[in-house]
């Protein structure tokens, strides 16, 4: 079965969904991402859905789940590039995905994730500093 590729860039994982996913493919992506966050210790997950022409409740739930799981694993999920028609439809459908961070495009999404990475670096540094005192 084909899978959606997951790229690793610094402390972030990047997924670009470019096909009309059937449900099993979506579930596989959810599993792969979870495993990859755990194995790489990634602190950010960026999911680019700018190519998606629809997001139905199933895909919406997948995005929600990925965000929830990554939160537990101490990573931020940012969904980027949702099209206006898709956003209107999702709201009409009753899915507002309030647990997910969003950004207009990959650039903005990466900036969000980077600021988070910098924060955790600062924390690590100050923690080390405290131990050394």
């Amino acid at each position: 079965m084909d899978r959606i590729p997951i790229l690793k860039l610094g402390g972030a994982l990047i997924v670009t969904i470019q096909v009309d996913m059937h449900d099993r493919l979506a579930l596989a992506l959810e599993e792969d991402l979870t495993a990859k966050i755990a194995s790489t210790g990634a602190r950010g997950v960026l999911i680019d859905i700018s190519a998606l022409e629809i997001v139905d409740s199933f895909i919406g739930r997948m995005l929600d789940n990925i965000a929830a799981v990554s939160r537990v694993l101490d990573a931020d999920t940012v969904v980027v590039g949702m099209r206006p028609a898709v956003a209107i439809t999702l709201v009409e459908l009753g899915l507002e995905l309030t647990g997910i961070k969003t950004a207009l495009n990959i650039e903005r999404g990466m900036a969000l994730i980077r600021s988070r990475l910098d924060e955790s670096k600062d924390e690590a540094r100050s923690a080390r500093a405290r131990r050394e005192d």
Binding site: D23, E53, I54, V55, D56, S57, F58, P84, A85, V86, I88, T89, E92, L93
Partner: peptide
């Protein structure tokens, strides 16, 4: 485009 997206999404829900 918005109406297309709505009916396609509805179709997806019902087909599932």
């Amino acid at each position: 485009l918005v109406d297309q997206t709505k009916i396609v999404t509805a179709a997806s829900e019902l087909a599932r």
